[in-house]
Design a protein around this nucleic acid. Structure first.
Lengths: 190, 190
DNA sequence: CGGCTCGGGTTGACGCTGTCAAGTCGTCGT
DNA sequence: ACGACGACTTGACAGCGTCAACCCGAGCCG
């Protein structure tokens, strides 16, 4: 009947992390919330790390989806900016996933290759946009630096809002959204 | 004699985290490495969170010191860029501290006000630089956005190098340093 | 000198955790 | 009819953070 135990475990894990933080994620509590014995989750996940890795993979997949959507609409000249906004919006919408995604010690790349693949997909979106905007004559080093610059800005803004001092002073709401717009506009208008 | 047990505990904690990650930090293992019983550290730290908070505070203090040093030397026009480089350099030099510093759930600001103070000091350096570079006529919103932009770029670059895909492809070494320079130069030359 | 407090530890216990090992039970293929 | 197997349970173990109680030597007070 409960082949969806797997889904229930993932769902319960996300909620647990949202409520108590990553440290509060416990195999046994997840099982309790799913109404099964403490060992049942092991039928679907080898260990605790495998649960987290599944969430990380799902996070990168969702991020890649949103970046792809944002990278298609609008004028070519605005695509990079729109995609940057989509990146920050994802982090603020899905803080649980976003935070997990950038703790590589949680999802060993060798052990969970699907995580790496999903991450590469997200990176690919950005790379394509940069290639498109730089044209075919830019040097590889310049290309790489441009990718890093755009990603760093969006990623830094997202993490500082989420876990840094910007988050402490700027609560979720329109003021925060306005600040994000302002920062990204300032960056683009150079 | 061992009033330096406190120092030994902090030292051992940093080494443990460097070796096994934050999850490997264990009150009991720290005590073992310091050669004392499993309860001895409790004489100096209320609990595990207090150890981590002490490290976070130390991290922000060291960062603020380095930013202050960088923000004083060189031409005024180059100070922002130099300070950005110092920020990234700190993250790469002290990855253990840097990673702890941006997990606010580890060091509750209400419980450990010294952490907040140290963090504010680091932020103050950046704020002063931005004020200096914008002149007195800029609007507060513009000021805030500029601070966020610079900090986001440096912070994003640092965290992506440390825990993101940039770190996976760019090992420590001159190539990485060159990349950092290139990104920051690209950003400044607008 | 005798006794007391007190810092700086120690030992022991508790409930919690992740995970290994083994057992149970219904359903399905042959 | 039966055996295999998937889905799950029960039980055990070591290690963890932390509470509680105890110990011991140095310093002060009478």
């Amino acid at each position: 009947m409960s082949l969806d135990l797997k889904a229930q475990v993932l769902e319960a894990s996300v909620r647990l992390i949202a409520e108590e933080g990553l440290a509060g994620l416990s195999m046994r509590e997840v099982a309790r919330r799913a109404g099964v014995s403490h060992q049942a989750p092991y039928h679907y996940f080898d260990d605790k790390a495998a649960i987290v890795a599944a969430l990380v993979e799902r996070g990168f997949t969702r991020l890649a989806d949103r970046l792809e959507a944002a990278s298609r609409e609008g004028l070519a000249s605005q695509r990079l900016a729109r995609t940057g906004r989509a990146y920050v919006a994802f982090a603020l919408d899905e803080p649980v996933y976003f935070r997990l995604m950038f703790r590589p010690e949680l999802a060993d790349r060798a052990r969970f290759p699907a995580v790496e693949a999903a991450g590469a997909r997200a990176l690919g979106v950005l790379r394509r946009l940069v290639d498109e905007s730089l044209g075919p004559r830019a040097t590889p080093a310049r290309r790489e630096a441009t990718v890093s610059m755009h990603w760093s800005l969006a990623h830094g803004l997202a993490t500082l809002l989420l876990d840094g001092p910007l988050g402490a002073s700027l609560a979720p709401g329109p003021a925060r959204d306005r600040h994000v717009d302002e920062v990204l506009r300032l960056f683009v208008e150079r």
